[in-house]
Each structure stands twice: as C-alpha cells, then as structure tokens.
Nucleic acid binder design. Structure first.
Length: 420
DNA sequence: TCTGGGGTCCTAGGACCC
DNA sequence: TCTGGGGTCCTAGGACCC
C-alpha cells in the first residue's frame, strides 16, 4: 500500500503559518517577478481567482476584496517542506519526495491505515502548521486519486481516504464522478482524445479496451490504466536521483537591451547551475544558452536566440562553464531587441568519478580548479549563496526579479526570525 | 505597463555497426 | 521477379508532472 500526502494550497499555507490572522482570508502567492497566480487559498478560489492568471488582471479584486498577496518566497517554502517531509518520515518506513509539497509513503505491512493517515495529518498540522490531505491505496496512481478526492471532499472525509476501506459500489461511484483528465498522468491533450472516443470519466477509463489504449497512446497510458485498476506498475523511488538536465532561467524585472545586462544574468545562472552539478557530484558535457524577447508583446519584433555546444571534456567548473556560456551568448546576441528572459541548460550529465576521455591536444587542465570549487562550495554553504559571485555577475543588477510582496524568511535568516 | 520556472519519460526515425 | 537480421546510439518532439 502507498500513501500520497500533500500540503493543501501549499505556498499559501506556508505564508499563513507565520500570519495566523490570515486564516479564513483569501490570499494568493505569485510566481517569480510577481507575474501570475500560482497558489490560492480556498477563500481566494471561492471569489473566482483562477490558477495562472496574470496578476495585473486581478488587481481590481485586490482593492475590492481585501485579498492579501505574497511574492513567492521559496526559501521559506523549501524549509517548511523539509520539516513536513521529516515529520512524515518519522511515521512510516520510507518516503519518496515527489515535489516541494507532496510525497509518497510506503505503507506495506502496516495495519489500521485509516488511523495512520490521521496520525500523519495531525502531526504535520501540530509540528509544522501545514494542513494536508492523505490518500491511501494499493498503487501510486490510486493513492493520488484518493488524495484528490480527499481534497475535493475535505469536510466530508476529514482529509483522509483509504481506497480499500470502500466497497466496490462506492469505488465505482467515486470513479464515475471524476473526469478522466483528473487522473494523474492524463493531461489536457490525452484527455481530449479520450473524450472524443466517449471516455469521459475515470470509470470509463478503467473499463476501456487495454490493447487499443496501448496502441494509440503507448505504454505510459497503459500503465496508468493498470494502476487505476489496482495493479501496481511503479514503486517508490527512495533515493533522490541525480538530475539529467539542469536549467536555470529567469524573466527579468526590467527589459534588457544591452549585452552587459545579459552577461550578468547568464553568469549568475551558470554559477547556480554549476553549483547544482557539484552538489550532485556530476559533470556536464553540453551547455546551452538562450535569450528571449517578450512573447506577449505583439507590437514588437521578436527574437529567440539559442545555441548549444558540446565540451571536449565534461566540467562542473564555474569559471570554465561561464567562459563558454559567455561565448555562446555573444554569438546569439542581436542588438536592437528588448530582452525579457534568458537562461542556461546543462545536459549530457554524468557522475564525476567515471572515467573521462582526455583531450589529446589539451590535457586536463581542470584538476587544480577542483580545490577552488570545493572551497567555493564550502564558503557559500556557510555564508550563503551570494557570498561569492563572479565579477561578471556584478556588471549589472538590472535583471533582478520584482518581488514587491515578499514575506520574511522566518525560519532561515537570523535577522528575519519572528519576534513577538 | 504588467503573463513563472524546473523537471521526467517515451517514441520514432536516422545513422551506423556487424 | 527475387534484396537479411539484429543491434546501438543519438536527437527531436510530444506528452506529462509540480
């Protein structure tokens, strides 16, 4: 058996932990640059605020309704997430952290799952202050499904649903009342294609002809169907896998036209990406750089620049990677455009300790840099991410994000600790 | 005026090998 | 007229997730 535990409206709930007066109030959290809505309290949903709408389109609601708005504070959310996961881990044999706000738990050979579900919920509420819902079922997809139902009917089920506690009659009713595109793994596109064939509900889906599904949509959807039927096709992934792609990108707070501004941003992203590579003890073979103009401005000419290069030797060295990235940037930069976003991608990632083919013409010149990079990592882990920066990062701060409604980092910054 | 960021997996097809 | 069989690796693109 598996459980799926997930924080309700997670970012909003995090903001409320240290602002208890906002319970029962409509609140929202915005994406980077205060762009659009990415988390809503249930009261905010009730007044009609949709997921993903641009902030500027709902500013009238804010004046009318006393809506409270937050810029996203990932430092706070990541710390509360860590506490939530540790709390869950203290109650079950193993967990798989699936995203910042949810995890799967292994419940094999445990009894009284309903009570366990409530214990998990209550302990997270008490220790961390985040409300959650719990779905428990024989497969991960069904656990997601139960969690979904527990959220939808939170007051009826008190946040916990155990699939196997239901008789088949109730199970069928639950399946029949859920649109097929609310199943985990069925998105917009496949949902539409299924609907065109008369498969509208989760019940239709589990009764659909399996070989036909397989032929049309492939093995992924077949597995989803099997899991919905109660046949496990996936297990918990306990060890955090290393990333195979690392992307760092940002929209700018302001428009950037100059190469300088882009160079500063690219240096910053490279520095973050390279640190991530080293953190997972890996090297990248391929480095890409991209720059975009604002795709929403139909009145302006658009330009998307992208260039990628394969390195002779894989690297996790900030200086080497930045040097190459800056060359790529110079290649794709075109003056005269208003740039809105840029970023980097590191791919072709492999573990650092594997044998590396040496370059015949340029024998390994990076060894002496390894010590420099580990000193770098030690300093930043002790004094903070920005305690060391590349000089080129400091050429311009024009690209930094807008975060006008940022809450304090209550749990991670001494100067911002809550005082009464 | 103002519209986020970061991932995964699978498949099909081409180039190439013996 | 008739043109093998079995494989690997890589890439691009599509679908999905939070």
């Amino acid at each position: 058996m598996f459980a799926l535990i997930d924080g309700n409206n997670f970012y909003c709930s995090c903001e409320r932990v240290y602002r208890p007066e906002l319970k029962q109030q409509p609140i929202i959290v915005l994406s980077n640059n205060d762009g659009c809505v990415i988390s809503r309290s249930s009261e905010a949903k009730d007044i009609g605020i949709k997921m993903g709408v641009p902030y500027f389109q709902i500013q009238h609601l804010i004046q009318q309704r006393k809506l409270t708005v937050f810029s996203s504070n990932y430092e706070l959310y990541a710390d509360l997430s860590r506490r939530m996961m540790n709390t869950i881990a203290s109650l079950v044999p193993a967990i798989e952290i699936y995203s910042i706000d949810e995890c799967f738990a292994d419940l094999h050979n445990l009894n009284n799952l309903h009570q366990l579900g409530h214990n998990i919920r209550n302990r997270i509420q008490q220790w961390v202050g985040i409300p959650t819902c719990v779905g428990i079922a024989p497969t991960r997809t069904l656990a997601k499904f139960c969690n979904h139902l527990a959220k939808r009917h939170r007051h009826h089920f008190n946040g916990v649903i155990v699939w196997t506690d239901w008789n088949s009659n109730i199970q069928q009713r639950a399946l029949a009342s859920t649109p097929v595109n609310e199943i985990w793994g069925i998105g917009h596109r496949i949902g539409q294609k299924l609907a065109a064939q008369g498969i509208h509900t989760a019940l239709d889906f589990i009764n659909a002809h399996t070989p036909t599904l397989r032929k049309q949509f492939g093995v992924v959807l077949e597995r989803t169907q099997r899991e919905m039927q109660g046949l496990p096709c996936s297990e918990l992934i306990i060890n955090e896998a290393s990333r195979q792609h690392i992307v760092r990108s940002r929209s700018f707070g302001n428009i950037i036209t100059s190469l300088d501004g882009l160079q500063a941003a690219i240096s910053h992203h490279i520095s973050a990406g390279a640190a991530k590579l080293r953190q997972q003890n890996s090297h990248a073979h391929i480095i890409s750089v991209f720059i975009y103009t604002n795709r929403f401005r139909h009145d302006q000419s658009q330009y998307n620049g992208y260039q990628s290069i394969k390195l002779p030797q894989p690297s996790a060295d900030t200086l080497t990677l930045n040097h190459i990235a800056q060359n790529l940037l110079r290649n794709i930069y075109r003056p005269g455009y208003e740039y809105k976003k840029c970023g980097i991608e590191l791919s072709g990632i492999e573990p650092a300790q594997t044998f590396q083919q040496q370059d015949l013409l340029y024998p390994n010149q990076h060894n002496h840099r390894t010590k420099l990079m580990s000193a770098w990592d030690n300093i930043t882990s002790r004094y903070g991410r920005n305690s060391i920066q590349l000089g080129s990062e400091l050429q311009s701060n024009h690209w930094h994000m807008t975060r006008a409604q940022l809450s304090p980092c209550y749990t991670t910054q001494f100067l911002e600790i809550l005082t009464i």
